[in-house]
Design a binder for these strands. Sequence first.
DNA 1: AATTCGGGGCA
DNA 2: TGCCCAGAATT
Length: 350
Amino acid sequence: MHLSDPALIDAPSVLAWYDRHARDLPWRVAPAARAKGEHPDPYRVWLSEVMLQQTTVATVRSYFVRFTSLWPTVFDLAAAPLDSVLKEWAGLGYYARARNLHACAQAVVNEHAGQFPQTSAGLQTLPGIGAYTSAAIAAICFDEQVAVLDGNLDRVLARYYALDVPVREAKEELRAALQASVPQRAGDFAQAMMDLGATICAPRAAACMLCPIQPGCIATRQGEPTLYPIKPAKAERPVRKGHAFVMLDAAGDVYLQSRPTKGLLGGMTEVPGSDWAAELVEVTYPMDGEWQHRGQVVHIFTHFRLELEVWSAAVEPDALEGGWWAEPAALKGEALPTLFRKVLAAAGLE
DNA sequence: AATTCGGGGCA
DNA sequence: TGCCCAGAATT
């Protein structure tokens, strides 16, 4: 046990702060409107929560507007081809989310008559909806009195309780402590606590003088809240190296292909390339041609650093199979992750 | 319980 | 540069 008799969070103070300082977000119903009985659209809340998994509000905003413009309801999204969803998701990262998003939309339409389940337990049975997202949707849309614990809350609670171990080792204790504090206005409370973490109890700086729960915060009382949360030792990031091949036909079109549906950048579009390994393999061109070295692209993934040598050549297209030729002007609409947009840029395209 | 999944913003 | 972000699925 790392928390002995954890003090409750003063929910009324948190809600009073939220009533005055709630951020204006495209998927949010403001607390005043919520008090008048206006309910958030579960489809929009779900879509926003999936996009926000490990992704900042600033990045999500434009994607959210685009998605809801193209697909205003869960029926529209479920009816859309997966390809078009992947194309619109391109650049947002964690592409398994896009596949699960589409699968979830179809499950809601086909197995739940287009209505999202109204409990966290029911929501969590759907693809791409885990402990956090199920609780968030249930609280925000249906005011289920459930603890909504995200990365912001990890930090806020670690400071509030001066947690002396990494959060991972006390996750369920923090959840129980938060659960005990959840008020009737569960949705507003959840969003308030996340806003508080994002704007006041920030990672590098804590504006404790503005914080509605400062009176109960142990880390503040100790004097240095940013000492928490305690960080686990970090593993170093390995390097992988490889080659990428940009092939152009006589018309100047580019050869593209699809990646396998599972694993890194699953189902997304790429240009052909070598395997990626710790040591750079000798280059083996996929076709005959006047190959030119166009430089190196460096791309940082969560768990490794990738260095790709970019080659380009004009080729005879006949012998290629499995992919397709794309006009340079049409590259913007392809399901190209950022890595391969960098590769194409290095070859003089995009 | 630990690892595998992207990418951008910020100090 | 390193850290963090409204985490989930897989192993």
